[in-house]
């Protein structure tokens, strides 16, 4: 796929001096069993009297968009509008035990926990709605905040009506339910052997670069990224993960590197430790694989780190294709490229 996106054959056929193409593929986990024998997540959902759902979860949002994805998953499972689902910030006093955002795990692990919690809550809603609609709970469906008998959408009641009916009566009770999920993975042994994750994400990237043989400077002319994260739940968030991941990958490949001098970091700030800025980003094309993860919530799995895994290899391959030198330490600075080019000239 990436070869077509970057127009590999045509670029190869009309190769310009000092430009090169590179490609690399990768695999990443969706959660990783390593904090003891538990890599799970849990969530609680309560239905308020106005029919809105609130998710209580200890999983943190750090800008990646997972809280939006969790609301979408709950809305889909509950059959309510996504704008009627809210989510709490993580608070260890109020929310259930959660491990946090690492190992590209949240959409997959906490998404499943939220889906299970929503399923639990939906059963309670249907039990109450069954009484009100004089129907068997198993025959009910919900969509857009309304509950109805399958095949008879005309006669419906709202989730808000159901929640209120369940609450405001003798022996009334709120509708609230929890769910959890722990993937079918194993704790790796001392040799690190073991299927440590419930699902695996795949990716491929390609880049077209130009290397200035006089300065060693690398300019990325274009970059393409293809990611398999199963079902894309939250497209804007997913796109952001691709772009952000790639930016980290490019920084890792070309510009970032902590310098230590006599035991002291000498670039402990962002003017000397350079992460790529908006203006450093190359033209980027991306695509998501048409894929479905059977164990994921609505077919989804992890995405975040996938997009920075192969980037350094992609760029290094492209540099090798452009000027024929291979740099074996990161970051690949212009100085290293120049040194390698000079060394090669000396040997020739």
């Amino acid at each position: 796929m990436v070869d077509k996106m970057i127009d590999w054959k045509a670029k190869r056929a009309s190769k310009q001096p000092n430009t090169g193409l590179g490609l690399a593929c990768t695999v990443h986990v969706s959660g990783k069993r390593h904090f003891g024998d538990y890599d799970g997540s849990s969530a609680t959902i309560k239905i308020n009297e106005d029919g809105k759902a609130l998710i209580l979860s200890g999983e943190g949002e750090c800008g990646q968009g997972v809280h939006t994805a969790m609301c979408q998953i709950a809305a889909e499972e509950l059959g309510v509008r996504v704008e009627d689902v809210e989510i709490s910030r993580a608070d260890t006093d109020l929310t259930t035990f959660c491990l946090g955002a690492f190992a590209s795990r949240l959409t997959y692990v906490s998404g499943n926990a939220v889906k299970n919690a929503a399923f639990n809550v939906k059963q309670q809603l249907f039990e109450q709605a069954g009484e009100m609609l004089e129907a068997n709970p198993q025959d009910l469906m919900s969509r857009g905040g309304k509950i109805f008998v399958k095949g008879a959408e005309g006669k419906s009641i709202t989730v808000a009506d159901v929640a209120r009916a369940r609450l405001f009566r003798h022996n009334g009770a709120p509708i609230v339910g929890s769910g959890s999920f722990d993937a079918d993975s194993v704790l790796p042994d001392s040799t690190r052997f073991g299927n440590e994750s419930g699902a695996y994400n795949y990716g491929a990237q390609a880049a077209h670069v130009h290397v200035d043989p006089e300065t060693g400077q690398v300019k990325i002319l274009s970059f393409v990224v293809a990611s398999d994260c199963g079902t894309v739940i939250y497209p804007i968030g997913a796109e952001g993960q691709v772009e952000g991941g790639l930016a980290q990958g490019i920084g890792y490949a070309l510009t970032e590197g902590l310098q230590i001098d006599e035991g002291r970091p000498i670039n402990p700030n962002f003017s000397d430790y350079r992460i790529p800025s908006m203006r450093d980003m190359p033209p980027l094309q991306h695509a998501f694989a048409d894929s479905y993860e059977p164990t994921g919530p609505f077919g989804a799995k992890g995405l975040g780190e996938l997009n920075m895994d192969p980037t350094a290899a992609v760029i290094n391959n492209a540099i090798f294709d452009a000027v024929g030198v291979r740099i074996k330490t990161l970051p690949i600075t212009p100085e290293k490229i120049l040194r390698a080019l000079r060394e090669r000239t000396r040997h020739d």
Binding site: G216, Q217, L254, T255, R274, D280, T333, P334, E335
Partner: peptide
């Protein structure tokens, strides 16, 4: 202005 790393670099 030659900046080997980021455009915004020294």
């Amino acid at each position: 202005k030659f900046t080997p790393r980021s455009i915004e670099d020294f």
